[in-house]
Nucleic acid binder design. Structure first.
Lengths: 218, 218
DNA sequence: ATGTCTTTGTGAACGCGTGCACAAAGATGG
DNA sequence: CCATCTTTGTGCACGCGTTCACAAAGACAT
């Protein structure tokens, strides 16, 4: 039986082994003392807890460049997502296939949601249309929305919204870039706002995690 | 002189006023006791600290659907970013304009970077090409990379990489969705892994912040 | 069976970020 | 010029998440 110890996993992931064990313990996934975790069972447990074993039908509304990019994105299928439908307001696009899936018109939005049992919607429309689309999705039964439009959506309680702003990541890079450039100039110790830049402990940090606090950067 | 108090700002932003003041104090931006912060000066200070007053030329490599979507994205200009060039490996695309900018061939990558003084690169290529493109960008002088390809890039020290995985946000939504569905079923108290789901204190949280820890969800 | 050795699971301590509460500072009015 | 009032800037305490450290548990050898 192939197994891994928490120590091995922690080293590979770059995290603390105790934290990893504690996290696993919340899952109820029992390892074997003196041996480690059964790899196959562990994978199954985590997959199930994360919802990877389920089939999540999603609809993408707004088939412009971004919507098309999302429809073509390969990473979805392996994580349990299935693009159930593509929806666009442009009647000229109706019927045309994108990524092998025919585009349907906004008029049929409600029917599409219900027929496919969709609970997750992706909004890739222009900013002006986003709230309206959102309202219709919610009314049709969608309870989770991924919003790429540069608008903050208002939704009733019980509906989750996650906003993806593609320029924020660039912003963060630019901020660090500025610090790099200003470092030698700032080393004279003068000037206000001489916020010291601490190097990230984990050099391999490539995630969208809280490097930069809500109001002010670290 | 138009001013704002930390209290007003905090209420508007949905954060604690003391934290806001403390953050501002790191900036060295002085408010006036009894009055508040001079709006104009504050905007200038924050803009400058965040790099919004600078001009950041960026190149986008890989002009597929996603690259085109990024080139067309309106949010960049207002944040100090300027798309200096679009680069693609497909010779047939060379010269064709996308979002009003002619696509250039990968062969000229190094020259483009140097001529425009680019320090930030965006990779929107297929996974297979990403590392190679990354290496060339870095060799040409790029020190910050925004990576949309589903690969972890390895870069030398001093180069910042941020990876954007479009499916991760969906993953998080699906996870919450699963919890919603499983809540009534789990209320019988039986079964392992009955991790309680606490409602987010801030209902308006739409950001890509650490809702879900590295290894296990909250 | 008994002992040793490895690795888990977890109680307890540590550290850090957030929020409270208040003194200092400056404006404003008499 | 003094009193009062507002709002900042910040020391301090609280709470939460991470890490340490160790006892319990099981495998494996003798």
């Amino acid at each position: 039986m192939p197994t891994v110890s928490s120590e091995e996993l922690a080293a590979a992931a770059g995290v603390n082994s105790a934290k990893l064990r504690k996290d696993f313990s919340y899952l109820g996934s029992y390892g074997t003392r003196g041996v480690g975790y059964d790899v196959e069972y562990l994978v199954y447990q985590i997959s199930r807890e994360l919802g990877l074993t389920q089939d999540w039908p999603v609809v993408i509304v707004g088939i412009g460049n971004l919507g098309a990019a999302l429809a073509n994105y390969g990473g979805f299928a392996s994580r349990g997502f299935r693009v159930a439908a593509l929806i666009d307001a442009d009647a000229a696009m109706a019927g045309k296939p994108v990524a092998g899936i025919p585009v349907q018109h906004t008029d049929d939005l409600e029917k599409i949601i219900k027929d496919n049992g969709v609970s997750i919607g992706v909004i890739a429309t222009p900013a002006g249309a986003a709230q309206q689309v959102c309202d219709r999705l919610v009314a049709a039964g969608v309870t989770s929305i991924l919003n790429f439009a540069p608008t903050v959506l208002s939704v009733p309680d019980g509906v989750d919204v996650r906003k993806v702003d593609l320029s924020i990541e660039l912003q963060i890079l630019a901020f660090h870039e500025q610090r790099k450039a200003g470092e030698e100039a700032a080393s004279d110790g003068a000037g206000p706002a001489a916020v010291t830049r601490e190097e990230s402990a984990r050099s391999a940090d490539q995630g969208p995690d809280g490097d930069v606090p809500a109001v002010m950067p670290a």
